[in-house]
Design a protein around this nucleic acid. Structure first.
Lengths: 142, 142
DNA sequence: ATTTACATTAAAATAATTCTAAACTGTTGA
DNA sequence: TCAACAGTTTAGAATTATTTTAATGTAAAT
């Protein structure tokens, strides 16, 4: 299946029509061989660099959120400053480098499985995420 | 030591002068026997209910951030919507109830210790936090 | 080809947070 | 004690991230 068809499929599965703008977004998100992390701002900048025409911020937000809802993107919460997204939607954890504000993957296998002894009555566990903040040294610990 | 003196001490240690407004904030944050979670918005509402005079938002932000910096409060990242703070500054993890948007403590002892096999060269681990999202059932998994 | 429902866009609206500048108040030391 | 200074408070403006709006444009079904 061609990339174009893959993108079209992803869009349709997210209840989105394959428009010129959305296909461009797909190209940026899903064509690299490595998964990566980005903020909406990052994505917008990449799009602007790649394109002659520019895509409205609203479209970027809508598309990213539709993909997130469908599970084609993951949102990572680090601080309230910004939303980080991850094109790697498999189960994994993260390092956050406080010096550079960068996210680094930490595979499921790099942390011993987490055994939770407590449970909340009537509630089901939806996700378990570990965030490891790192910095060079005497940084503020947040 | 009287509560007032405790508050004054905490403020001074955070490089803040003990003013009327700040002492009121201390009273709300540090007098309850149980620790609790709050957003700036929550805190402002509590202050408004308790007080005849009102405290400016800027003062609330400044004071909370100074306490966070000093380590008298902890910030918890759940999503980008809001900043949650915790008056429990000991090492522990959290459940986040997606139905009610409530944070629930999960003691250090309720999760087996986390063994991280990977490390980032030249970086030191500053914190390890586990966030367990829960919901009644077929909720969106975020 | 036409129609219709969904999309795109710029600009306005909203929400959380930070900044500003003027008025005020702890604190220090004469 | 009290003047003088340095730090504080405050309302409101500014900023930033995100969402909404409403007019115009476009994919897809007939």
């Amino acid at each position: 299946m061609s990339n174009l068809n893959i993108y079209t499929k992803k869009l349709r599965e997210s209840s989105l029509r394959p428009t010129r703008q959305r296909l461009k977004i797909c190209e940026v998100l899903f064509s690299p061989d490595k998964t990566f992390h980005f903020t909406i701002n990052d994505l917008t900048k990449i799009l602007e660099e790649k394109l002659s025409e520019k895509i409205s911020l609203a479209t970027v937000y809508n598309t990213v959120h539709a993909f997130k809802k469908k599970g084609y993107l993951k949102e990572i919460s680090i601080n309230s400053d910004k939303s980080y997204f991850d094109t790697n939607v498999t189960d994994h954890h993260h390092f956050f480098d406080e010096d550079t504000n960068e996210l680094i993957d930490c595979g499921d296998k790099e942390i011993d499985s987490i055994n939770i002894k407590k449970n909340i009555t009537g509630k089901k566990i939806k996700s378990v995420e570990v965030l490891i903040k790192v910095a060079t040294d005497n940084q503020n610990q947040n």
